[in-house]
Design a protein around this nucleic acid. Structure first.
Lengths: 127, 127
DNA sequence: TGACATCTACGAATGATTTCGTATAGTCTC
DNA sequence: GAGACTATACGAAATCATTCGTAGATGTCA
């Protein structure tokens, strides 16, 4: 284990997403969940998850022969960190600009826009 | 020059941001603009910009001995692409979720929240 | 012209990321 | 228990991103 809180790489993020969705999982389970999108061998997934354990992105329970992995940071926390990172790197620190670009993404439906607006109102009230 | 539209790396994005702000610039100008944040040698910046020209991220005018570089993709287009990429990799395609995380970023001021809300209203009207 | 500064080109080292093959050991079934 | 299956560990290759040093060409100016 080493430094915590490092931007996860692409491959690591894909694995984290499986762990967030499924909860604690074995390498086999993660690998199968990724099979749709990735075409890599089992040992590749294994190696990545071992590295992630070294980095402190996941923990594993080694009680049984088949180890069981869990994400350490939660989904929200990691997403938050990734957004902040992108805001800093590409938007000069302006979250509003990022939101603007997000809105102009093709897939944004009107329902989604209303949802976002509601989120903002809720959020402002909480302050 | 090779494949266009590739996610720019961190160092590349920093250079692009200078080119967007200053417009067409020499390596020297870019390097000096980056001097505040980066502590790398001149030839590092040069090499990066040469690579970016290979990748098709920038073009350069070689008429004069001192080449003049320009970003090919605009700031908006690149930001859009980066956001979309992050939405896909970390938010399962939901731009709304990304916006939610952006809002809970520490630095988001109330003024910014109002601004974002206004952006959404404007954007909905445009539809 | 000669000394010096500045520019590009390019090779190469380094470190991180991703990938896989092989070795080794535990488990299961007949 | 033998053979098949499945797991971890680990070394190593391939690729990419970043960094810099050096060489050689060009420009400046006293």
């Amino acid at each position: 284990m080493a430094r915590p809180q490092l931007r996860p790489t692409d491959a690591e993020l894909a694995i984290l997403r499986v762990l967030w969705e499924r909860g604690a999982s074995t390498v086999r389970q993660v690998h199968e969940a990724l099979a749709d999108t990735r075409e890599t061998g089992y040992t590749t997934t294994l190696k990545l998850m071992q590295i992630m354990a070294d980095k402190g992105l996941v923990t594993r329970n080694e009680t049984a022969r088949t180890h069981v992995y869990s994400a350490i940071a939660g989904e929200e926390q990691t997403q938050h960190q990734l957004v902040r990172d992108l805001v800093d790197r590409a938007f000069g620190g302006s979250a509003a600009q990022l939101v603007l670009r997000a809105l102009s993404a093709d897939g944004t439906t009107d329902a989604e826009l209303r949802e976002i607006r509601k989120l903002i109102d809720d959020y402002r009230e909480k302050r």
